[in-house]
Structure formats: C-alpha cells, structure tokens
C-alpha cells in the first residue's frame, strides 16, 4: 500500500485516495476548435512512462482535494506532490 504525500494533509495510506490518471492534461478551452485527431489524443493518448510520471490523486477520504504528484512507476516511490494551480517543483 502506497504512502501518498497529500500536500494538504501530509503522508496518508493509499486507501484514503483515488487515483486520477496522468496529470497535466488540460481540457482544451475550445474543444470544438480541435480536429478529431487532436480531440482523440486529448481523450485517450497517455505517456504511460516507465519512470517518472506526473499524476493526479484525490484525497477522497480525507480533505477531498485533487493534487498532483510525481512518482517513479518502477519503484512506486513519490518524488514530490503539489497543489492544483501550483507550479511543479
């Protein structure tokens, strides 16, 4: 069970969180302006890296807030986490 660093509450066990998928994929401001390729890429293409991954978590059974984190997908260790709207450290 991962120990996840909530930037609001501190480290908490994985059971308190919901995974939110890859981070940094902003919803286009004007989806209608995108062609099908670009919209499909937004919906479905993911970097899925072997190594450092920027991802979203929600402390759903805690403060309820979404935040970003960087985790190594090989060791599952977190490098850092930050609040929505903050710059990545």
């Amino acid at each position: 069970m991962l120990l996840i660093p909530c930037p609001y509450c501190g480290p908490r066990p994985e059971l308190e969180f919901a995974y939110g998928g890859e981070g940094g994929i902003a919803r286009p401001a004007d989806p209608a302006a995108l062609d099908d390729d670009a919209w499909g890429a937004f919906l479905y293409h993911r970097s899925n890296p072997r190594g450092m991954h920027v991802e979203r978590w929600r402390h759903v059974h805690g403060c309820g807030r979404f935040f970003n984190a960087r985790r190594d997908t090989v060791t599952d260790l977190f490098a850092c986490s930050w609040k929505v709207g903050e710059a990545a450290p």
Binding site: A18, A26, R56, F66
Partner: peptide, 13 residues
Amino acid sequence: LAMMEDYLQTEFS
C-alpha cells in the same frame, strides 16, 4: 459526485 469535483477543482476552478 467524483466527476463533478474533478471538473470543479481542476478544469472549472
């Protein structure tokens, strides 16, 4: 509710 929170906190903040 989770979906609404997601959009509210991250897209429509």
